[in-house]
Design a binder for these strands. Structure first.
Lengths: 252, 252
DNA sequence: CGCGATTTGTGCACGACTTCACAAGCGCCT
DNA sequence: AGGCGCTTGTGAAGTCGTGCACAAATCGCG
């Protein structure tokens, strides 16, 4: 849902003047599709670990929690090479998706703000296995600088430019308090960072060539709260209460 | 994006047979709107703290990072009472949104999985100020049981049913490893929990009356990686590089 | 008291995404 | 070789969401 994402797609409709990628010419994926590819990828890895060689769109869709038609359409954007009557080759599909997402190279990520949340993120093992590694930690608080987390030293934010350049970092995670987030973002942008994952509960202003995605825990809870509220209202006078009927997968 | 959310809306088109809420009859908000209300709320609180009494849709939209027409349309669903020529009354609007989201009552939340991430979430102060408080912590690991975090003791998951009933919990957060998430979800559901925020990288199967929202850090990064990949391809032969032109707010 | 400036609320058209339904293709079995 | 069952890939219809553009409403001021 990043509004920023739209800008890229809109400005090159169909002119294939700028094709000289190793990628066979990515055919302008819809935003919604890009948002689901990682989910497919995760499901595929799980299937591969379980020893599957091929999957049908039906199976994979179930594993990823989506409609199978949607899945097929999504994959068709990648010049998908499933074979009719059989399904998709798991390892081949994994490679294709990883390629499209640019996950071949392990991308270096900077993490700014080593508070409660930042600390946890720094220690999160899941990154490495999914195409990323945290290459540097920063904090504005001198008291935290020098601390070692998971084999990485916390540096002061004043060293940001230097380290980002040195490590070739283009993606950063902001896990600072809200009031510090904008200035951190500005600093990151001026260092050449072009993608930001923001955990601070605030809106960031960035140049249009920079992508921002936001994760706000309180917002997620508030959305759930709404549905909870709604459900509470409806159960006030239930005609037939369908307490525990069907187990049914719901998507992300 | 929660596929589960759709089910509620679809089954009551326009029959207002079941209106007896304290809410003047919530007029079936679109999903997309519900997803933005919390953002508006946060922006409004910020404005209120800054001493604003009224806001125009333009101002508030900017603060929330959205289009002003969209904002107005969203608010119109809430029987919005802005005054033309003036704007919206800040405190009044805050109360209305909080009411619609069901945030009047501080909702009790259970947190399952006190590992790296769970620990951070338990210590996150932002919840309390946003309408929630964590009422109980659980972990399956006996070694962690008994630990005190932020004034709350970690309990063993076997006590889940008991505590959830006692505290009147209907929302839970899953911060366990992926392999444990489904069984935790099952346990939560059978305790009566009807909303789950899932941080584990996996798809959960739940009955259709249960809402699940998912947050996956690796997925967010992979989406950014895609855009990064894309940008790298485009900058290969740039006509004019618009490095730092306009600062421009981008949305959630 | 009326006028102009301002801002909300919304009809409408457009675009994006989803879903259905089915033709096209592939492999297996006889 | 041919037919049959299965699964992909995709046209087309339907649904949802967005954003423009403007009428309606309110305030302040002369």
């Amino acid at each position: 849902m990043p509004a920023s994402a739209r800008s890229h797609m809109s400005q090159q409709h169909n002119d294939r003047s700028a094709i000289r990628t190793d990628v066979p010419d990515l055919p302008d994926l819809p935003d919604a599709t890009v948002g689901r590819l990682p989910e497919y990828l995760r499901a595929l890895h799980a299937l591969a670990d379980a020893g599957a060689d091929v999957v049908s769109s039906e199976e994979l869709a179930a594993a990823a929690g989506v409609n199978s038609a949607k899945l097929r359409k999504d994959l068709s954007y990648l010049r998908s090479n499933g074979t009719r009557g059989v399904g998709y080759d798991v390892t081949q599909l994994i490679e294709k998706i990883e390629h499209v997402l640019g996950l071949n190279q392990h991308r270096a990520v900077a993490l700014v703000g080593v508070g409660n949340l930042g600390h946890a993120l720094a220690g999160y093992a899941g990154f490495g296995s999914r195409g990323f590694h945290i290459a540097a930690l920063f904090d504005a608080d001198q008291a935290r600088v020098g601390e070692w987390i998971n084999g990485l030293a916390v540096r002061h934010t004043s060293q940001l430019a230097e380290v980002v350049a040195q490590e070739g970092i283009s993606i950063a995670v902001i896990a600072t308090p809200a009031h510090a987030a904008q200035s951190v973002a500005d600093a990151l942008v001026s260092c050449g960072v072009t993608s930001i994952l923001n955990f601070a509960p605030c809106v960031l202003s960035v140049p249009e060539n920079v992508d921002v995605r936001k994760v706000d825990l309180a917002i997620e809870l508030q959305i759930l709260s709404f549905h909870e509220h709604r459900k509470a209202s409806l159960t006030a006078l239930p005609s037939t209460l369908p307490s525990v009927l069907g187990q049914e997968a719901v998507g992300s």
